[in-house]
């Protein structure tokens, strides 16, 4: 997984409260077997004009100013609703690396970390300031996020944020939960070896 140290990117200030994962990716868009290629379905209900695959001009993401947006800005309770990890896969596939919001729903938060996206919670006032500032020139006024110092730099200021040490370590090192557990591989192998002695019946079962 891509590690995360700093990121400089175009911000997409949607600022919506209670943005749920069904909106981030509707279930009919979850028809792929792979995590890749889901970008197409991202925000599909808003991004495309009446059911056709034509870009809806009113949706921010479709405007040239927001081309290559990689920092998603939302309001309260971002990523609530269904636990579908497809929402985060679609964001990552599109190229988003950071989600900045007032508060972030916990499953969505963990899914972000598991997929190399940095979730940042900032107070509403800071969010509004950054959004207003970047909206004037989205391509020029990029938002910089530094995970080493735990700071967002934008609008001529720096905003500190907090993140759990484990999530920070995973992101900095590009570790997925699998990689993290694999650091304990010797414990698992030792357990398995002992277990084969105690429960040989399980390991021999079904062999013919």
């Amino acid at each position: 997984m891509k590690s995360f140290t700093t990121h400089d990117g175009v911000a997409l200030p949607l600022m919506t409260d209670n943005m749920n994962t069904d909106v981030i990716i509707p279930s009919r868009e979850m028809k792929r077997v792979s995590k890749a290629g889901l970008a197409d379905g991202l925000f599909a209900n808003f991004r495309y004009a009446d059911g056709k695959r034509e870009p809806a001009p009113g949706f921010l993401l479709n405007q040239p100013d927001y081309a290559k947006a990689s920092v998603l800005m939302l309001g309260r309770n971002a990523g609530c609703g269904s636990s579908r990890e497809h929402a985060v896969w679609a964001l990552a596939d599109y190229g988003f690396r950071v989600v900045i919001a007032e508060t972030i729903a916990s499953i969505f938060h963990d899914n972000c970390v598991a997929n190399g996206i940095l979730p940042v919670a900032l107070p509403r006032a800071a969010l509004d300031r950054i959004a207003a500032w970047t909206s004037d020139d989205p391509q020029g006024r990029r938002v910089r996020t530094d995970l080493k110092t735990c700071r967002v730099e934008a609008a001529g200021a720096a905003y500190d944020f907090e993140i759990a040490p484990l999530a920070r370590r995973m992101l900095l090192k590009g570790l997925s939960p699998i990689d993290l557990t694999l650091q304990d591989i010797s414990l698992i192998e030792t357990f398995s070896k002992t277990d084969r002695q105690c429960r040989g019946w399980l390991y021999r079962a079904g062999e013919s």
Binding site: S83, E85, N111, A114, S176, P177, I178, T181, I188
Partner: peptide, 16 residues
């Protein structure tokens, strides 16, 4: 379990 946990279980034979 969900997708990521499933991969976790397959790859590490464990789950948290």
């Amino acid at each position: 379990i969900g997708s990521t946990d499933c991969e976790h279980a397959l790859a590490t034979r464990t789950l948290r």
